[in-house]
């Protein structure tokens, strides 16, 4: 009865068998963003299909993280449009900003995983994950906790439900953060450098969970520096530099046969 992605069964499926839906789940259309005088990006467009895992790579300052944060309106874009399953996000049909109630309702459809985990410090892992279902979705405390237990199961954290974030390692915290996103049953999950703040030995436990999610056809947009993950799990890799998408394609195309000079230079830096 749970609509959480069935990860065990999906582990067998390979990433290449991606059934393409007719229209994209996420459309980013000519997005502008600036902070004061500084332009972060101008007219960026991107489409993400249902069940697709898109990995954004590029040097720091390229605007990848800002783009990600614009998608669920943690930052407000200055121009362009975001559409989720055809519906305009953040503004109504007349271009006016939505009320707080409407915007927060739209936000529920996205999951967001932060670089610094941002778990609620005063709550146990279980309550962290149950907070959304209880407070936002209006479930009873018991129902919310049940859902939270299932989500924590999926990220292999069922042994640690009562622990506080301060008692968990970085990798464990990030997995709880992923469970927190999953418990809201989002249509897609955004990952902002999910392993950049982790010690190297903890990175894999998080990447494994993300791998499982991708295999279970969760639509994901991931900003990361973990190139092996991109190579193995991404359906599409998007290379951004200085506020523009320079090139995109399958991992084989972007890593093996990069068309642009800038892409080549960036990839070279990674190997040195």
């Amino acid at each position: 009865m749970s609509s959480l992605p069935n990860l065990d069964a999906a582990r067998a499926a390979t990433a290449s068998q991606l059934p393409l839906a007719a229209s994209p789940l996420l459309e980013v259309e000519r997005l502008h963003k600036r902070f004061g005088e500084q332009v972060i990006f101008k007219s960026v467009s991107l489409q993400v299909a249902h069940g697709e895992t898109v990995v954004l790579i590029g040097p720091s300052g390229s605007g990848k993280t800002t783009l990600l944060r614009c998608i669920n309106f943690l930052e407000t874009p200055d121009g362009g449009a975001i559409r989720l399953d055809g519906q305009r996000i953040g503004v109504d049909d007349n271009g006016r900003a939505l009320s707080e109630v409407q915007l927060t309702q739209q936000r529920r459809r996205f999951g967001f995983v932060f670089q610094r985990f941002n778990l609620f410090a005063h709550l146990s892992a279980l309550d962290n994950v149950a907070a959304g279902p209880q407070r936002v979705l209006g479930l009873s405390r018991e129902a919310a906790r049940e859902r939270a237990r299932l989500a924590l199961d999926k990220v292999h954290m069922q042994q640690h439900t009562l622990k506080r974030p301060s008692q968990l390692s970085g990798g464990q915290q990030q997995r709880v953060a992923i469970a927190r996103a999953l418990a809201m049953e989002p249509e897609l999950i955004l990952f902002d450098e999910p392993t950049s703040a982790l010690d190297p030995e903890l990175v894999n436990e998080v990447l494994d969970v993300m791998r499982d999610l991708a295999a279970a056809r969760m639509t994901m947009v991931v900003v990361t520096h973990e190139m092996s993950f991109a190579r193995q799990v991404a359906h599409r890799v998007v290379f951004m530099d200085s506020g523009a998408i320079v090139e995109q394609g399958t991992p084989a195309e972007v890593f093996g046969r990069p068309r642009e000079e800038r892409t080549r230079r960036f990839l070279q830096h990674l190997h040195t």
Partner: peptide, 13 residues
């Protein structure tokens, strides 16, 4: 970050 996390799961102010 605590505020952003709460916002990202759809909490109102």
């Amino acid at each position: 970050g605590q505020i952003e996390a709460a916002q990202s799961i759809g909490m109102r102010h």
